[in-house]
Amino acid sequence: MIQGQELAISTSSLTKQFGSQKAVSGISLSVPRGSVFGFLGPNGSGKTTTIRMLLGLADASEGEIELLGHPIPKQLEQALPKIGALVEGPAFYPYMSGRNNLIRIDSADRFSEAKTRKQRVDAALERVGLSNASKKKVHAYSLGMKQRLGLANALLKPREILILDEPTNGLDPQGTREVRNLIRSLAAEGITIFVSSHLLSEIEQLCSHLAVMTAGKIVAQGNIQELRNESQTRLVLKSDRIDELVDVLKGQGLSKISLKSDHVVVPVPTEFDVATLNQLLVKKKFMISEIRLEQPSLEEYFVNLTGEGFEVVR
């Protein structure tokens, strides 16, 4: 565990074994309080399984968990009331109204106050924009409305952590934007938000921190700015006489030069001096049409770590 920094969620060597498969394989998460922590990974990488262990729904095969300083599952009962969650999509009684569903789940919470129940339920419905549909039976809800009702359920009480498993799944772009705004406003209240997704683009703008998971392992984790910096800067050069150009670059001590049809791409140190190189090339009478440093997008970084394909990894 990381010392000196207050963590909302921390795990060490957390593992979940299903038969012979390790769905989660020794992950150590450090989620600082107040952060919006993106938990990124392709389908089947173990995100939901991790979240189930965090919430005490499944037992860890190995490793330790702490939520807000409470060891899990030992002090689960103390931790859970401070946590709102959406796990593997929303789930409700289809034959009851949205509002009655929330009343039901809140009645199940043995720490919640019956007196304020209706008021809290209505406030949560209001917050996710479902007030007008609250009397409709859930089987008449669209997936987007169910997703919102799931969020309302997570917001029935003031929370310290929200754990949201793919909260934008099944939402249209408008709905996705609304959920993002909701998360932003919750984060602004100081709530720690742990949000999983298989799409970086859905959460990139939100997150202050990121962990990237693939095949049960965390392959990168940290502050989003640090992660951006970790990716390799590249020099892109477009010019005539490209073969000669390659020789010149090699003469400058650059390697791993990749030759594209009309340009070259070379990995370089972050503080590479483009101006000096440019001067040199001009002196050698190259007709340079483009010269620039490029930082790969986080998306590209993510794809590099997790592999591109559409196929589920396992």
């Binding site: 919430l55 729904l57 593997e88 929303p90 919470d109 720490f111």
Partner: peptide, 18 residues
């Protein structure tokens, strides 16, 4: 099968009580 069990448990309802 409805999936509501996970939401009852994280409410938290308490397994024995449920």
């Amino acid at each position: 099968s409805l999936g509501t069990l996970r939401y009852l448990l994280i409410a938290p309802v308490g397994r024995l009580r449920l």
